[in-house]
């Protein structure tokens, strides 16, 4: 696992330069559109747009890594829905494999879920990648998010890579003393030293905060200043207008919901079902193999 502080990837792209609040508006607008959409083709296309934007912003490599975490869940949700659709019957069967029967509605609904999570995850990831966490919290401070919340989150982000390194040092040290590096019994010799050393860190950090007059009641300032520029206001206006138009358009067309009517061509259905099944079975096999050691 990487010990990098956050997903933020420095860069000079247009997206990097936007104010974090502008980016939050964009993200919210996308959520408003993505969540009610009931069309897997549009959803996957939107996820594709996020990929293109990630390439354009020069953050593609870490983007792929970040998205890979969502893949197992995407396979699982498509698999569940394909064979056991969570919608009222009637269901039109496509084919049967042993005990399982795949349905058109199920495959469609499963792809909607997978497409939705991939599209939401892709845009959210992209926005996080092009926004410096400090900038984000400085901006959120301005719209009334408490200072403490931002401060604590930033300290957490600093601590995670440090504790991560410490945890792997502790596990290695315990292994060299003969600890079995798996199973429930290994938790205690790994967790307790980690907590003990973190408590030392708590005392050091508390002292250094004290020394810097953390508790004083004066106004807190930040090294990084965030301003809404003209281009930010322009982007916000365009985003809001475009979202309103998109919502109206999609609403007129029932959010392109073809759940009950769409029939997958047999070859496409077979390919998709095979992909989803192999993905899910592969994931299950991986988890079982890890558990067995």
């Amino acid at each position: 696992m990487s010990t990098r502080a956050t997903l933020y990837t420095p860069g000079q792209s247009f997206l990097h330069k936007l104010n974090p609040l502008t980016k939050m508006v964009i993200l919210l607008a996308l959520l408003v559109i993505i969540f009610p959409l009931m069309n897997p083709f549009i959803l996957f296309a939107l996820a594709g747009v996020a990929v293109l934007l990630a390439i354009a912003a020069g953050v593609f490599r870490d983007f792929v890594q970040g998205m890979s975490i969502l893949i197992p869940a995407a396979f699982a949700m498509a698999f569940f829905q394909t064979f056991w659709p969570a919608i009222p019957p009637p269901h039109r069967p496509i084919l049967s494999i042993g005990l399982l029967t795949a349905y058109h509605e199920g495959l469609y609904y499963g792809l909607v879920f997978a497409g939705r999570i991939l599209a939401m995850g892709a845009f959210a990831l992209l926005i996080v990648q092009v926004t410096h966490p400090v900038d984000l919290f400085v901006s959120l401070l301005k719209i009334g998010v408490p200072y403490m919340l931002g401060f604590m989150t930033l300290v957490t982000l600093q601590l995670v890579p440090i504790l991560m390194r410490e945890a792997s040092t502790i596990i290695q040290a315990q292994q060299s003393r003969g600890m079995k590096a798996r199973g429930l019994t290994a938790i205690i010799p790994s967790m307790i030293p980690l907590f003990a050393s973190s408590m030392e860190r708590v005392q050091q950090l508390a002292m250094s905060l004290e020394a810097r007059a953390f508790g004083s009641s004066g106004k807190k300032t930040s090294l990084r200043e965030m301003r809404m520029r003209g281009v930010d206001y322009a982007v916000v206006v365009v985003t809001v207008a475009a979202t309103a138009a998109a919502v109206l358009y999609f609403n007129q067309h029932g959010w392109f919901n073809y759940l009950r009517t769409y029939t997958f061509p047999l070859s496409l259905a077979v390919a998709l079902i095979a992909l989803v099944t192999i993905g899910f079975v592969g994931m299950a096999a991986y988890f079982l193999a890890r558990l067995a050691g």
Binding site: T6, L7, Y8, G66, I69, L70, I117, M120, G121, A124, L125, I127, V128, P133, L136, T153, T156, L157, V160
Partner: peptide, 9 residues
Amino acid sequence: AIALLINPV
């Protein structure tokens, strides 16, 4: 922190 480290979803 998880949102900024892994994914906001």
